[in-house]
């Protein structure tokens, strides 16, 4: 039977990649818009919040996840931290 299950194993669908692209772009562009003189309120807030956190605990930058959602009327930013135990 094992050779059969090896053949017939249903293919797992590849995880979708578009949401990753979307999130990477949102974070990147909120940063770049500041560097090129476009409106970058969110980017500035992000920097300030991160600086405040780093004054109290030292976290590596890969432990910080920033998610920015831009909509026509409002934008939201979520910053999550992996806190060391």
């Amino acid at each position: 039977m094992s050779f059969l299950t090896r053949w017939w194993k249903p293919k797992e669908p590849a995880p979708s990649t578009a949401p990753v692209a979307r999130e990477r772009l949102q974070v990147l562009l909120s940063h770049e818009r500041g560097a090129t003189g476009q409106s970058n309120l969110l980017g500035l807030i992000k920097e300030d919040v991160l600086a405040a956190i780093k004054r109290h605990i030292s976290v590596p930058s890969e432990a910080v996840h920033v998610k920015v959602e831009r909509r026509k009327a409002i934008s939201t930013m979520r910053i999550s931290l992996d806190l060391p135990k």
Binding site: P13, S16, T17, A18, A21, R22, L25, R70, R71
Partner: peptide, 18 residues
């Protein structure tokens, strides 16, 4: 491909570029 989640959707691009 957009339907499968492998390509940015029209709404995604519009929302990012406004």
């Amino acid at each position: 491909r957009a339907g499968r989640g492998d390509m940015l959707k029209i709404d995604d691009v519009m929302e990012i570029l406004l």
